[in-house]
């Protein structure tokens, strides 16, 4: 469990990146912090592994104040994945993945053995092991970044816009893989993004931030879509534009869910939870977790 208690961060020079932020993140939960650039997301995330020390308030992990922990030891116990993956350009893929285990004193052979398994887990061709990061595609680099973050089997994984620099198709693929990994590994994940769709897809809960790290709304994607607290949230999630509004059309005796542009998003499952014949599983993925919440018989216009 990670707890933020009234944390504030004022950088030298006077920028108040975070005014007064409190949030509890349960163990095994994935929380997405989403907000525009400069809203304090990175600052908040870096308070967890003490890359940033709060000016006021405290951050604790399993009820222990991180301020009392040795920052280097703390960081080696927390996975960290960032944009452009921050891979070490002078180390091969395998050496990048073994970074943290080797820093922690794991024997090199053992660390490499595990790194090869991890490459498989994140969907990397074993032939890439001896490449340097510059010799990989953006998507492959991000996979290495994720493998490196998982290498020491940390309980907590911090991800700072990890898929921000890859093209939409690869991003979609990586998001799907992360969801699959999380179902298996059940880490506590703090995921920073400025992309609300990504936040809804990855986060069990989503915290929408205003500048200064002020929480506009925090809740499950369903809760946020069903009941945006204010216009800021509604506009952020696109509910005000009708972009999130789905409606149902009856086609051949089946309930087809259609999005705001009139494109079929999927088939509505029966009231008893039984899926319609085919297409429903795909539809669920495409419409996102909020689909049921806003599915309505009304056309938006």
């Amino acid at each position: 469990m990670i707890g933020f208690e009234n944390v504030r961060k004022e950088y030298p020079g006077g920028t108040v990146a975070v005014e007064d932020f409190s949030l509890e993140i349960a163990s095994h939960e994935a929380v997405a912090l989403v907000g525009t650039s400069g809203s304090g997301k990175t600052t908040l995330m870096r308070m967890i592994n003490r890359m940033v020390d709060p000016t006021a308030g405290r951050v604790h992990i399993d009820d222990e104040d991180v301020a009392a922990m040795d920052p280097v030891v703390l960081r080696r116990s927390i996975g960290y994945v960032m944009q452009a993956s921050g891979l070490l350009p002078h180390r091969t893929v395998l050496d990048n993945i073994t970074t943290v285990p080797v820093l922690r004193g794991t024997a090199k052979g053992e660390a490499r053995e595990r790194a090869r398994t991890l490459m498989d887990t994140v969907g990397l061709d074993p032939d890439l092991a001896d490449r340097y990061p510059a010799q990989l595609s953006g998507g492959q680099q991000q996979r290495v970044g994720v493998a490196r973050g998982l290498a020491a089997d940390p309980n907590i994984l911090l991800m700072d816009e990890p898929f921000g620099a890859v093209d939409p198709i690869v991003r979609d693929e990586l998001q799907g893989e992360l969801q699959r990994l999380q179902r298996e590994l059940r880490k506590t994940i703090v995921f920073v993004t400025h992309d609300i769709d990504e936040a809804f897809r990855i986060g069990d809960r989503v915290a929408i931030l205003r500048p200064g790290g002020r929480i506009a709304q925090v809740g499950t994607p369903q809760e946020i879509l069903a009941d945006p607290t204010d216009d800021f949230v509604a506009s952020f999630v696109g509910a005000d534009r009708g972009a999130r509004t789905l409606h149902v059309e009856h086609v051949d005796g089946r309930d087809v869910v259609v999005d705001a542009d009139g494109r079929a998003a999927g088939v509505l499952a029966g009231a008893d939870g039984r899926l319609g014949d085919g297409g429903a599983a795909d539809g669920d993925a495409a419409a996102g977790p909020g689909a049921e919440a806003l599915a309505t018989e009304e056309r938006p216009r």
């Binding site: 030891v73 960032m82 944009q83 891979l87 350009p89 970074t99 943290v100 820093l103």
Partner: peptide
């Protein structure tokens, strides 16, 4: 040397001297 790479090295748990010798100097 990219500040992102240095920040990421710190995040992985390099102590300052090790980060200088193993990351900053070679880069």
């Amino acid at each position: 040397v990219s500040r992102d790479v240095l920040g990421s090295a710190t995040a992985q748990g390099y102590a300052p001297a090790a980060r200088f010798l193993a990351v900053e100097l070679p880069l």
